[in-house]
Design a protein around this nucleic acid. Sequence first.
DNA 1: AGCACGCCGACT
DNA 2: GTCGGCGTGCTC
Length: 839
Amino acid sequence: MPSPQLAPPPSPTATVWPITVWAVALPLPIPTYDFAAPHGYDGPLPLGYRVLVPWRGSLSVGIVTGASAGGAHRLREVAGVLDAGPWIHPGFLAGAASLSALSRVPIGLLLSDLTGVGLNPRYRHQVRAVAGAELGMFGQGVPTADWSDGAAYSPPLLDAIREQGLLEETFTLTPRMTTVYRARPWEKVPAEQRVQAVWQALEVGAAPLTIRQQIAWEWLKAHGPVDSLSAWARQSGVGSTVVMAVLQRGWAQVQQGRSAPPPAWSVLRGAGEFATQTAWALAAGVSPSTVAGLIARRWADSVEIPAPPPALAAPSRAPRNVADDLPEELVWRLHGGRDRERYARLAARIRRRLELGRGVLVIAPDAATLRRAWEGLSGAASQGGTEAVLFSGQLSEEAREHTWTLIQSGAARLVIGSGLALGAPLDDIALLVVLEEASDGYKWPSGSGVFVPDLAARMATALQTPIAYVGAAPAVESVPYPGVVLAAPRSRIHTVDYANPPRQPEMGPLSAVQLRQGDQGYPISHDLARLLRQVAERGRQAVLLAPRRGYSALIRCPSCEHTPQCRNCDIPLRLHQQTRQLMCHQCGYAQGIPERCDVCGEMMWSARGPGTEWIAAEVRTLLPGTPVYRFDRDQQDDLSPLMAGEAGVVVATQALLARDALPNLALIGVTLADTWLNLSDFRASERYHRLLRQLTSWHPERAPLLLVQTFQAEHPALRSVIDGHDALAFPSAEYELRRALKYPPHAMLAQVLITAREQGRASAGADEVAQALFAAGATPQEVLGPAASPVARVKGLYPYHLMLRTRDEVRLAALLNVLNRSWKARVRVDVTPRGGIGV
DNA sequence: AGCACGCCGACT
DNA sequence: GTCGGCGTGCTC
């Protein structure tokens, strides 16, 4: 297997010809492939540059990831180098190569997941036959000795010539073009469009006129010419037969005259240009088909012009002058406090690094964190004598390309972005900042399954660049690093302890509300109900966090207990009341609610369960007249009235926290905190603690009352926040606990996922993998499992997994090496599992 | 990933 | 007889 390397290795076998071989990563789930440098290329290794390589009879864009020792059984030349500087940061490639080597995730997959721009560039392709070459054997219509456009030939033909070394070609990146509509000058509109028939009076006719005909003729003589006979008749006050007679008797004639320009054309000429046909139609007050017709009749041209640079986010004002007293080590952390304070401290460090003329890269896990980071940090750029740029997948393709070019040119040295910014071609990175490093938002949902902070850490190691972890609460993994913890913001927290309900529940004004699950009430306890009423009475805002989306109920047959299952995934379907559908939350399969139970034929269904939809219904009953909104993956109500300060309650899943806080927020209710703890995941309590920290500091200024309903009111994560401990206290305790339990960071984990379409093959494959690991010396302490996945079938595949737990990465790498062969089932590895240890 | 090749069951 | 399901192998 060709492996990417950063420096040319010493060649054990001297090659006869001094061919430079490059390892090229294509954005595909395959390893790097080797290509020879283009004929005559004598520059240095273009690490991180985009190149065009022959691929399956055509050309593909790839990234040079290193030099190669060679050994390819078929070596083709790179057809062209597109860039004059790295498009992807070489440090990023080094980090990706290191992660790829450990996790067996093909580097091309990492690349296609994490390269946000430039992998389908526009370029001009020119070809010609090399001097003296005779291309006649390739058939008719082949390139000649003169340059011509490569697009004129079929790709396989060009590739055949290229393979023989008889093709010379150049590639030039072309600016992104955009189409605008412009009016054609009158003289250039097709002649037949510019003329029309006009009728004109003649002085003398061939035959005498009647009185009415005389009237029509005199009107035309005075007011003519006219462009239609009916207009002539109408305006002169005679019938159409009369004007026809005037014409027949030779007192008028038809001629070709200048036609009236269409009004929409005049509008376009007046405006200069429109960017879309729709905009033009709107401005002219005509339908889109009318303007399309004008374009077809060549009254207007669509013109390709270079796209204007998109508007970039305006940097925030420079923060106050804060002293930089943050650590100088290679890895450090900054946590706790409020966003504003934390970002002010971080901005001071960033400014100092930018002042040295170096670059700083800041990575955020979600849109809200990114936006706040931009607010808090972008002002440091102007003080540091450079520009700040924002980079994330939410930008348009044009904006991403433009931003990338600004970074590449050195005009912008502060990059604040999502994981997609990790490869930004910053020239000299002085500091890498990972915000909220424990956020699950960093875990790539598909493809490579990369955990972005892991890649960032490997990148920092490869570059020997300082990396900082900054956020509301540190990851347990960050505890040992030197750092600064800011005092916790003052917060008011009230818990409702479901496990120890008061003996005498107060009823009073709430007796009309039908409460469930005992005296305390679920999902809305007495305390929560009372507070919600206060919020409603005072016209303030409240957020209720619900455990799951939708109605989230399972439906169950009351007589035989049967629950309808997903046809793909072997998990129960969940009820969505609003759409009257059953949905699979694993694969998205949806169906209507069956009339009768398919096991026993009963026609009744019973349903119950927590979820945004149900809780929202309860709140509406409780607070008639108060607007109740829902916010989860299924239903994202328009929250703009709330953002404008109006009263209301939002029932939401955690997805809401990725948005800005409601301005008038007075209460946050966590309806069932235990949802965050019941997961079979050793990170559950860490995640719960972070959630609580995020909730207490979600609002930038206020401290809304936080009400937590739970069966575990004494959970240390909750106690730590209630008791006012700083953000490091709980993660530190957790760090020690994990030492005893041998969990990360005191051990390395990797999940091996074995899947197959048939269950037998999957289970046999899993056993085979386990046996191979044991045969290679793995101990029973290191191999946990294999076991069938808790969900027996996902998207038609039977998943089995086993967890590897080793003392360090070297040992893990040694064990994972065992997997480097082919298996009967599909075997994939996740070296940063974040879904639970579930054995 | 995409695509070709090749093997088996269901119909124009 | 072919059409088309999908398992397997390959791309420098």
